Simulated scan of single mutants.
Amino acid sequence: MLANGKKLIDLDTLIKALYIGYEVDPKFEVNDWVVVNNHGDIWTSRIAKITHDEIAVYVDECPYVDNKQYYVFSKLRHATPEEIQREKERRWWAKFGRNINEYKKGDIISLGSITRSINYFFENGEFGLEGMDFSYKPYELALVCPVENRLDTQ
């Protein structure tokens, strides 16, 4: 098969591809979000570096071993938008040494246009806010300032 005078693919290869199928090797670049599957340990990370021979990558974060470990392309796949969002959220909360939606008494939160501190917790996992008579679920709130970073309570 010719295009602009250049051979793109021979007819036999095209027929095999149409009837048998074919695989396209994924292309990976630095800063791509990937899911690593290393012997059953699975996590989402970003590519920090590609080896000089372009057969493996180093990732920016690994929960199981130090970040000096490299992974061959066969152990990677591109992360979905949902996996990327979940990992970004996990990393954001990890900056404060917390799990996702792990609020503490004294945290400043926002609830729409309202900003308050968390005063107490209920046994069902909901929160009570300063000056408000209702309880709230973690997914209804947004952390503005963790209690550890507050300058008005030290």
Rank of each mutant, 00 (worst) to 15 (best):
V35K: 04
S135T: 07
P81V: 03
F96N: 04
I50F: 14
K16D: 01
V65G: 00
A17M: 14
R90H: 10
N101L: 10
E140A: 07
G131M: 03
L111W: 05
E83K: 00
I55S: 14
F127V: 08
D32P: 00
I114E: 11
S110W: 04
N4H: 13
F121P: 09
E123F: 07
G97K: 06
D41T: 13
E123S: 15
G5E: 08
F96I: 09
T13A: 05
R98F: 06
N99E: 10
K6N: 07
V30W: 10
Y19G: 13
D152K: 02
R90T: 06
I114W: 05
V24W: 01
M132P: 03
Y70D: 04
D10S: 05
K104A: 15
H52M: 08
K16P: 00
I100N: 05
L143H: 01
N119W: 13
K16C: 13
P63R: 06
V72K: 14
G5I: 07
Y64F: 15
Y19S: 14
Q85P: 02
S117H: 11
D41Y: 09
F134Y: 12
N4G: 15
E148D: 15
I47N: 01
I109V: 15
L18Y: 06
L14T: 03
K27S: 04
F73Y: 05
Y103Q: 10
F28I: 00
S113M: 13
K16M: 15
R46K: 14
S117T: 11
G131Q: 01
L111M: 09
I42V: 15
F73D: 02
Y19P: 09
T13F: 08
V147T: 07
S113Y: 13
K49G: 05
K104Q: 09
D152I: 05
N124G: 14
V30G: 05
E89C: 02
G5K: 04
N67E: 12
T51N: 12
W92S: 02
D60Q: 04
V65L: 08
A142C: 14
E23S: 12
L11N: 14
A142N: 13
F127Y: 08
R86L: 00
R46G: 02
P146I: 02
M1D: 11
P63C: 10
G112V: 04
T115M: 14
R46T: 10
F73V: 04
E140G: 07
F134H: 15
G112K: 02
I15Q: 03
H78C: 01
S45K: 00
A142F: 12
D152L: 03
R150H: 08
N38K: 03
V35R: 07
E148W: 07
A142K: 13
Q85Y: 03
K49E: 12
K49A: 00
L141E: 09
K104T: 09
G106K: 01
Q85G: 03
N101S: 11
Y71R: 11
I9S: 06
V147S: 15
I84A: 09
A3R: 15
L129M: 01
D107G: 05
G125P: 04
